[in-house]
Write a protein that binds this DNA or RNA. Sequence first.
RNA 1: GCCCUUGUGGCGGAAUUGGUAGACGCGCUGGAUUCAAAAUCCAGUUCCUUCGGGAGUGGGGGUUCGAUUCCCCCCGGGGGUACCA
Length: 944
Amino acid sequence: MEYNPQSIERKWRDYWEKNEVYRVSNESDKPKYYVLDMFPYPSGAGLHVGHPLGYIASDIYARYKRMKGFNVLHPMGYDAFGLPAEQYAIDTGIHPSVSTDANIKQYRSQMDHLGFSFDWSREFRTSDPDFYKWTQWIFQLLFDSYYDTRADKAKPITELIAQFETSGSSGVKAASQNDKTFTADEWKAMGAAEQSDILTNFRMAFRKVAYVNWCEVLGTVLANDEVKDGVSERGGHPVEKRPMLQWSLRITAYAQRLLDDLKTIDWPDAMKTIQSNWIGRSEGAQMFFDLKGHDEKLEIYTTRPDTIFGATYMVLAPEHPLVDKITTEDQRAAVTKYLEYTNSRSERERMTEVKEVTGCFLGAYAKNTFTNTEIPIYIGEYVLMDYGTGAIMAVPSDDDRDFAFATKFDLPIIDVIDKSKYPGADRHDKLGIMINSGFLDGMEVPAAIELMLKKIEEQGIGQRQVNFRLRDATFSRQRYWGEPIPILYDADGVPQKVDLSQLPVELPPLDNFQPTADGRSPLARKTDWVNHDGMTRETDTMPGYAGSSWYYLRYMDAQNHDAFVSKSAVEYWQQVDLYIGGPEHGTGHLMYSRFWHKFLYDLGYVPTPEPFKKLINQGMIQGVIEFLYLSKSADEQKRFVSADQVNDSGDYARIPVFIDFVSDYGSKDSYLSPDGIRQFVEWRPDYADAVFVTADGEFKVGAMPVTFKFQTHSEVGKMSKRYFNVVNPDDVVDKYGADCFRMYEMFLGPLEHSKPWDTQGIDGVSKFLRKMWGLFYDKNGQFSVSDEAAKPEEMKVLHTVIKKVNSDIDRFSFNTCISAFMVATNDLKKLGTNKRSVLVPLVKLLSPFAPHVAEELWQQLGNEGSVTKVEFPTHDENFLKEDSITYPISINGKKRMTADFPADMSKDELEKAALALDDLQKWIEGKEIRKVIVVTGRMINVVV
RNA sequence: GCCCUUGUGGCGGAAUUGGUAGACGCGCUGGAUUCAAAAUCCAGUUCCUUCGGGAGUGGGGGUUCGAUUCCCCCCGGGGGUACCA
């Protein structure tokens, strides 16, 4: 019988579904293992061949772990709220729930054809009210909690209120922006609104006016990780900083723990550094400077207190609250003008014009108590309001930006560090000997920093402080398609939780998804929904990362109506053991999940401090992009130029072309034939009149010789709709089968690497599968397996592959597993093996990789039940023993010959035997043998 | 700029602790089969060569009997971040 993947795969897909083979129970005597993929956002484009890469790897690992005796949780679901579905709704009027539903059906069907062992009984989407009820519940938990910095954990806000009632604000150590002090009596005398205003400064989910990233086109606020290069990550629209009243999450309270606990998890170093840079811890001092003619003090933050003798001026952020107060009348006009300028600048402009120095003198002065001089105060764009205190002491001699600023505004520069002892050290390095610095002179920089910190604290003008770059996460989105924030405002505007019995706050139906003109969510139009029990609802919704911050916990107990996850389920599954997904989530999803998880851990809802024990980032599967060069010359005629005719002097636009039109696509010689050109202009009728220029002259469509070849330019890049280079897995599976597709994706290269898709290469894996199938069949196509005992060389082939596959799966090296299978199949074919004792373990070994064909062969071998339930084979070292070993023999480290010696030969015997070899004589004759290095079992090296 | 990561045949890649560089597959070349093609099978395939051998893992240097692997400097690709005081 021929190997027919289509019928085999259909048969076993049905069998698995009917028998619920992959259903997993929360009760088991076996050790648990939780393998998770980052769940997809179901976009309208469906899956392309790049998406399943991680899913295949995790599926192989999940199957392997099951066969190794683990109770494996391996679920899948959908991250279903988000901007694209809503933008689509604005464009087409189709409700996001409708398009999302259609997209999910498409994703599910595509995944079903790839043989994954997901437990679909645990499937959910984040837009299900049953799911987001608990997202809202966690939000309320955040609202109801504060961070006790003394205990270093989050606690119920009721404990803080109790403290206020007994001793007021004194003795409270908590993460907050609160600057009010009050006694217990004062607290009790306050009204509800006033108490609420104070408490919001402590809550883990809180409302405050903050400079946020406002995106006009999307009509919403965005978190820092949703802004890339000054434009929105989704859509690339301009973003500006705007003060707005927003919900935020106090992730900064966890900055130190998020940083410290990176040491405890098995993640790629790259991902750990991304996170630790994002958290951005720095150690320094907070200092107060006296202001000339004002009672207020100017508070600054510096990491270089040692350089204070070089501080010749101060710079405030333009938004700094003191600016208005301390600006002198002389400078008022100039300052106002400068503020107009900075307000007009978009984030994008600010970022792209970093080199440009701008600023304005306020007319005010501060006192540098160490140099005993009055130093001028400026405002400047390069000082950011939301880092540190929004003010700096400028030391032009030891900071590039301060230096540039001082040069432009002609401010004094005093060298305070002699770096001559450290050649190559620049301004950034904390190296050198202090000069021009009074009592610090002659000290090394690190010692000077330490001494200054002491002085500052002694004199009471400041204190040591650790700062983080990490900002609190804005949590409000002025959009429709997200979880409603479950908050009601009473007549005084005091926010109240929606009662648990009223959760979920369901998203009401809507047909106008356009953002409102006043920057509120489209939900604000739904007044009958907004007004509720004499209160008004919060109309903002949660951001995309809300549901994904805890979804991995829901799989543990997906149907639970009474809790986000039951105590027993989370005690059993603990945390995700292996998490596979793309590296693009380092500062977003992976940061927020760690934060939410730690928060839930503090309150006793989860038993572990980290959500994901081990993380692997799979690489991207790239596509070939084919471009046509379109001449940008001014004349009317559209001229395409063959890639071999393109010269440096010309100016060309690169037009991506659908790869199916291109012959030999992906190669250096990729080209459009006359037929390809015909397809191209049918697809892009605006080019119907275009001229195509090759070495042979200029041609128009329909007037080309048969031999006409128009060269295209090939590049490796992203697989994407806009490059018309998407390869759909369905097409590949239809032709070769899911088993072949799975193995080929793994065979392509190491999981973590990005690599280009090459449809041609799949033939190799396809041939392998047929060859392996052929081992079970005789010349006449009859299933034929022998019960004879296997020969030692057959057992050796088998146990070699068993050993290799076991160790390679353990280190996630799936590509070398596939090679090992190919080698074994080639060897067994040469040996003519059809012994049951060899083929049975081989089928088991193959089943995590190619589950359908393994089930089929398992059944044909006469077994009952699924091969996925049997034990994974382990090797026996006895079958691998060799009588003799082929030693490479090198002269001075260069291999010259090989020789076989018995495996049990000793070092001395090997040396003697090697030196006696005839072939060796011509290399050593006339030379002195200085040394012979023998590594038993490996090699022999003769040094002459 | 800073941080991380990566560089091996025409291509994807292998070499797990310093020990036969190029496993496995694609592609290519030749042959068998075929009227022919596809498919299949067999052989070859790092480069140079006077056929002795020589060179070779981005480039240069070093450690070592021996380096793709360790160390130093430089160059290229990918990613992160970016006035963070």
